[in-house]
Amino acid sequence: MTGRVHIYEASVTWTGNLGQGTPKYSGYDRSHVARIAGKPDLALSADPAFRGNPAMYNPEELLVVAMSSCHMLWYLHLCANAGIRVGAYEDRPSGRLLESGKEKGHFESILLSPSVTIETGDVQEALRLHQEAHEACFIANSVNFPVILEPSIKQPPTA
């Protein structure tokens, strides 16, 4: 398969050494920092269920956010091309992760529930474009679990 290749580079540095490295599972902090050139640092930790800091983002949350963000960006692009003017877009995505054994787990699914207000355009076409956005989304095309779409479309009241 041929196509353009895009490279995404970052650095991830563990910052949770409490002075003894990793002497035991409960003996170190899960804090780490992601750095991407020219952007603010992103402070991360593990999920609180895995001894992480609940005030920091964790990788599982970022995967859910990445999926939602990718879908939204494709959707807005497709709506603009179709002459559907989106006035507002909000999603409340959720991911379902199953711990399937000792130190193993996987995402079972991510649910996207975008609520979209369209200013102009056909409601049915606006709904259909969610499936097209899903098929185009780079993140959705890269995972091995279902991404469930439950969009809703609203139109502002007519005067």
Rank of each mutant, 00 (worst) to 15 (best):
E150H: 03
C70D: 03
G38P: 05
L111K: 05
E61F: 05
E132T: 12
C70Y: 08
E90Q: 12
A82H: 00
R4K: 15
G121Y: 01
N17A: 08
L42A: 07
M72C: 05
E61K: 11
T117A: 13
Y57N: 05
N144Y: 11
D91C: 05
S31T: 14
R51F: 14
V86A: 11
Y28E: 04
L76K: 10
I84R: 08
H134E: 12
R85M: 07
V116G: 08
E103V: 14
S69M: 08
G19V: 09
V33M: 03
G3H: 00
V116Q: 00
E119P: 07
G105Q: 11
Q20S: 14
V116D: 04
V12G: 04
C137L: 10
P157Q: 06
N81I: 05
I7D: 13
S68D: 04
P151C: 08
L97G: 08
G121K: 08
G83L: 11
G95V: 05
G87R: 10
K104Q: 15
T120P: 02
V33E: 08
P93L: 09
P156E: 12
T13M: 01
L18Q: 07
R51V: 10
P151D: 08
E60Y: 02
R35T: 15
I84M: 03
G83A: 05
A159F: 00
L18K: 12
E9H: 01
V147S: 02
R51D: 13
S109A: 13
E108W: 05
I84W: 10
L111S: 09
S109P: 09
Q131A: 14
W74D: 13
L111I: 00
T158F: 06
L73F: 06
S26A: 03
L42K: 01
Y57H: 13
G19C: 01
V143R: 12
E99I: 13
Y57A: 07
Y25H: 13
A66E: 06
E135M: 11
R92N: 02
Q20P: 10
I139Y: 11
A66N: 00
Q131E: 15
H134Q: 11
I110V: 08
S68W: 04
I84L: 00
A82I: 09
V65A: 15
T15G: 03
P114D: 07
M67P: 00
A126D: 05
Y89W: 07
A140T: 07
T158A: 14
M56Q: 14
C70V: 12
L62C: 05
W14A: 00
L18N: 03
D122I: 03
R4T: 15
L127G: 14
L129H: 04
R128I: 08
N53F: 10
L98N: 11
A88I: 09
P54M: 03
I153E: 06
L127T: 04
A43T: 13
